[in-house]
């Protein structure tokens, strides 16, 4: 009962904050809304007894990624931080539709292929086992080390690519001067 209520409250918060991220016009308000969304998602994890994932969600996303995003935005955007050209009020609907369809398809696929057991809605809430983080580590480092390393390589490649692309821009700017 209590758990179902918590779940619906958190789900409502996630939805409201996610909508706020899309609709708000001030850049910093968008950021705050995004942050609220990330923290509410962490709350959902906590309410499902996935403490480790929830903690990681807060440390990595709310603590670091969100802040880095806002720093990047503040460095780029010298004006008042008006987002009306990039968010829901923009007219670039083609890219938006493609992105929405792709993300929707991915989410739909994940939801369809996951075997949910003990959903918070079914009432069998007390039986949820906490995620065993030792098994999590075992899975990442012993069972699927190749996938884990491939992911790390991909992130490293993205990092290097980001550095190189920004570097190229610098040189072009100097030539232009």
């Amino acid at each position: 009962m209590l758990q179902t209520l918590t779940f619906f409250a958190l789900a409502g918060l996630v939805t409201i904050f996610a909508l706020g991220t899309l609709v708000l016009r001030n850049m910093f308000h968008t950021f705050l809304s995004f942050l609220g969304c990330l923290l509410s998602v962490a709350g959902v994890f906590f309410s499902l007894q996935a403490d480790f994932i929830g903690g990681v969600q807060v440390i990595v996303y709310a603590g670091s990624v969100a802040v880095l995003i806002v720093l990047a935005l503040l460095l780029i955007n010298h004006k008042s931080g008006d987002l009306s050209r990039t968010n829901l009020w923009s007219h670039k609907w083609l890219g938006g539709v493609i992105a929405a369809v792709l993300v929707g398809a991915a989410l739909f696929g994940v939801i369809m292929f996951t075997h949910f057991t003990g959903l918070p809605l079914t009432g069998e809430t007390a039986a949820i086992e906490p995620v065993p983080y030792i098994e999590l580590a075992d899975g990442l480092l012993n069972q699927y080390p190749v996938a884990f390393e491939a992911m790390a390589m991909l992130l490293l490649a993205a990092l290097v690519a980001a550095i190189i692309t920004t570097q190229a821009d610098d040189k072009a700017d100097k030539k232009a001067e």
Binding site: F28, L32, L35, A42, D51, F52, G54, G55, V56, V58, I59, A62, G63, S64, V67, V70, L74, P130, Y133
Partner: peptide
């Protein structure tokens, strides 16, 4: 008394910089 108390404390102390960031922007 959390099983992952250390992770929890690290997570919430990470958030301590956010109010200051808000203050600086606002």
């Amino acid at each position: 008394d959390l099983e992952l108390g250390v992770v929890y404390i690290m997570a919430v102390t990470t958030l301590a910089s956010l109010p200051v960031l808000c203050a600086g922007y606002a």
